[in-house]
Amino acid sequence: MHEMALAEGIRGIVEDQARAQSFDRVTRLRLEIGAFAGVEKPALTFAFDVVMRGSPAEGADLVIIDLPGRAFCADCIEEKEIAGRLDPCPDCGSGRMMPSGGDDMRIKDMEVV
């Protein structure tokens, strides 16, 4: 969706961290992106390369870890993993599913020098 804005968010965090933790360069940065976050991974990778120029994360390896979608089944009264937002409950087939996770967009960690 708004991969450029996301990349700018990452750059902001990298620059804050570089000051707070005094490092020069990020060699690898790991993101956790939920299945329902609406993030186009190729677009984010492209935006990352462009937006990080001139920042401590210029040229860093970008690793994207996929997190599953999750929804609460109103019939099982339990949280389940689902692949698509509108999928029925994998256990009971119920359609009464309330999305409860999988829209994460997080920086997990960074390898720095």
């Binding site: 968010g9 965090i13 961290q17 001139g54 960074m110 390898e111 020098v113």
Partner: peptide
């Protein structure tokens, strides 16, 4: 400030846990 300040002699790789939402500033 300039991105990254040179600190001579400090080149050890380390891992920093961030666990922060990309949109945390927003």
């Amino acid at each position: 400030g300039p991105a990254g300040t040179e600190v001579p002699g400090m080149s050890q790789e380390r891992l920093i846990e961030i666990e922060t939402s990309i949109l945390s500033k927003n």
